[in-house]
Design a protein around this nucleic acid. Structure first.
Lengths: 148, 148
DNA sequence: TTTCTTGCAAACGATTTGCACTTTG
DNA sequence: CAAAGTGCAAATCGTTTGCAAGAAA
C-alpha cells in the first residue's frame, strides 16, 4: 500500500519528467491541477476540479484546466472517459475500474477488477497499441428500477 | 445466420410490441428511423443517420431523430455509447463488441467478443440490474503511432 | 528576450427544449 | 376530438479557440 503523500510525489515527478522530456514549462498551475486531481482521485468531471480549486481560492481559467488535463493524459497520469452524459471524466491512470452505469439517472459506481483490465490489455491487437482500457455495464440501479 | 430482411422484420415487430405496450403511436418516422438504423448497423452517429435519411429524400427533424433513437434504446433495440468524442453512437443491442479507440484520431475499430460480454453480464452486481455492456481499449492506431 | 502559458470571452457543436402545427388512435 | 408526435428555431452546456498579456527558460 502506497501512502498518499508518497504517491502524489511520484506523480509530481512523473509530470516533471514528462515536461522536461518535451521541453514544456513547469508552471504552478500544472502542479496545482495535478494535486487536485490526485486529491479527488477516483472519477471526477472537469467542473468538479475547477470548483474545488476555486473553493480553496486558487483561480485558474477553465481553458487552463482543460489544457492541463489533456496534458496529464498525454503524460500517462490520467485517463479520460466519457460515459452516459456528454461530459468527460478523468481518473488516475493506474485505476482498473469496471463502471456500473445507470442509464436512467446516470449514476456511476466503480468496481475494481484488475483481471479484466489485464485481460483486455495483454491481448494482441494487430495494428493497434493498447494503453489503457475501460469497461462499462449499463443497466438500472435499484432506485431507478423501483421507480419505473 | 439470419438474413437481413427477416432480422429487420423481427426488430419492427419488437418496436410495434413496445409501442403497443406503452400506448405510444406507430408513426412512419419511427419505422423509417428503425429501418435506417438497421441498415447502417454497426456503429453510427446521429448525424450519419439523419443525413442518410435526407439523402434518400426522407425528411425528419433532428429533434425527432434524437427522440426516436432514445425510444429505440428504451425498447431495447439499440444501445447508446459515447466514446472519445462528445458524440453519441448507437449500435444494435445484440452486438457484443470490444472497441479499439485511437486516442489521437478517434478512429474506432470493432472486435467481436461474445465471451467478454457474457462475462460482464452474468456477474452479480448487488443493487444493480445489468442490461448491456461495452468495453473499450484506448491506445494508438498504427497511423498515429508512426506520425508521433 | 523569445516562446510557451494563461485568462478571458467569443465561438462551436452536439443535444435539448418550447411551442405551434399535425397526426394517430 | 384529445393526446401524442413532429418540425423548427432558439436555448443549453460542455468544450475549444483566438488573441492579448504574463511568466518560464
Amino acid at each position: 500500500m502506497i501512502s498518499r503523500p508518497t504517491e502524489l510525489n511520484l506523480l509530481r515527478n512523473q509530470l516533471t519528467e514528462f515536461l522536461r522530456s518535451r521541453h514544456l514549462r513547469k508552471t504552478p498551475e500544472r502542479y496545482a491541477i495535478l494535486d487536485k486531481a490526485v486529491y479527488l482521485s477516483a472519477h471526477f468531471e472537469v467542473d468538479k476540479l475547477y470548483n474545488a480549486l476555486e473553493e480553496e481560492g486558487y483561480h485558474v481559467s477553465r481553458a487552463t484546466v482543460y489544457n492541463t488535463l489533456e496534458l496529464l493524459c498525454e503524460a500517462g497520469i490520467l485517463n479520460r472517459h466519457i460515459f452516459a452524459t456528454n461530459q468527460a471524466r478523468y481518473e488516475l491512470a493506474r485505476g482498473s475500474h469496471l463502471h456500473l452505469i445507470c442509464r436512467k439517472c446516470g449514476k456511476i459506481r466503480e468496481i475494481d477488477d484488475p483481471s479484466l483490465t489485464s485481460r483486455l490489455l495483454t491481448e494482441e491487437y494487430p495494428g493497434f497499441t493498447p494503453e489503457y482500457s475501460s469497461s462499462s455495464v449499463y443497466g438500472l440501479c435499484d432506485d431507478c428500477a423501483s421507480s419505473s
